[in-house]
Design a protein around this nucleic acid. Structure first.
Lengths: 130, 130
DNA sequence: CTAATTGCAAACAGTTTGCAGGCGT
DNA sequence: ACGCCTGCAAACTGTTTGCAATTAG
């Protein structure tokens, strides 16, 4: 299975992820990539995104009630913080899962997902901005 | 804002949640409730579900890539286990979040969501079935 | 009786797919 | 030149909404 072709649109899409450090949704990607390739279509974004996930270049980040977002894979194991005010998603380094899980018998855990929510520094209600 | 009317369909839908202990999706709810009210429509299910969430009778449980599921609220704080084989979702008692979170400055956490995935006892690959 | 609720179908949003033409290799 | 990739639009799925008829209070 040879690599996919290096088209202008594919490159533009990859660039978007290199320049934006947070998980992006298809519409956001379209928007940003269109600055480079204006006639880019949403279908192409979806195809590229799916291919890139398949190739493990991207990881899918799913948040409750929202379209899936994508971020570059190969990052350290981490979790996400969802700002309920500005709706942005941030990466949190390190694992937030308890080490001594106490699961019922018979459950085999192969993966986990943690999302914290609240307000990010920029939106924090009690910022110490005097 | 008076309580909503006690219609046959609303009651049927509430019953579904009393009888099923796991998070259910709209389609599942429709299916189960139709045993009681055959001509029940999907739109009514959605309306009821949304109303019930609004009234805090139900909680929304979102899993990556799947339609939202709903479960009765007022349960103890808990998290979810998603069996990747049979696709059912189970409740896990207790909180699985690390107690000593080490977040960057400025993030205010108001909630969190944890989903483990793997195989449930019924689907476990290495069951000790000799 | 009066107005909220229902069921149907049309409207919507997000995502996928088919096809003819364009473009990497 | 070959065939993958793109763009457009149509198809699909999940969810919401408009409206006339039904029914709870």
């Amino acid at each position: 299975m040879p690599r996919q072709r290096q088209t202008r649109q594919r490159i533009a899409i990859e660039n978007v992820f290199d320049h934006e450090p947070r998980p992006l949704g298809p519409a956001e990607v379209l928007d940003l990539a269109q600055e480079e390739v204006p006639k880019l279509g949403i279908a192409t974004v979806y195809r590229a995104l799916n291919d890139m996930v398949e190739e493990k270049l991207l990881r899918v980040v799913e948040l409750p009630g929202q379209p899936a977002r994508y971020e570059k894979s190969g990052l350290h194991h981490h979790h996400h913080f969802h700002c309920l005010q500005c709706d942005k998603v941030f990466d949190l380094e390190g694992c937030l899962l308890k080490s001594n899980l106490n699961l019922p018998e018979g459950f085999k855990v192969t993966g986990h997902d943690i999302t914290l929510s609240g307000s990010c520094p920029a939106c924090a209600p009690d910022s110490d901005e005097s």
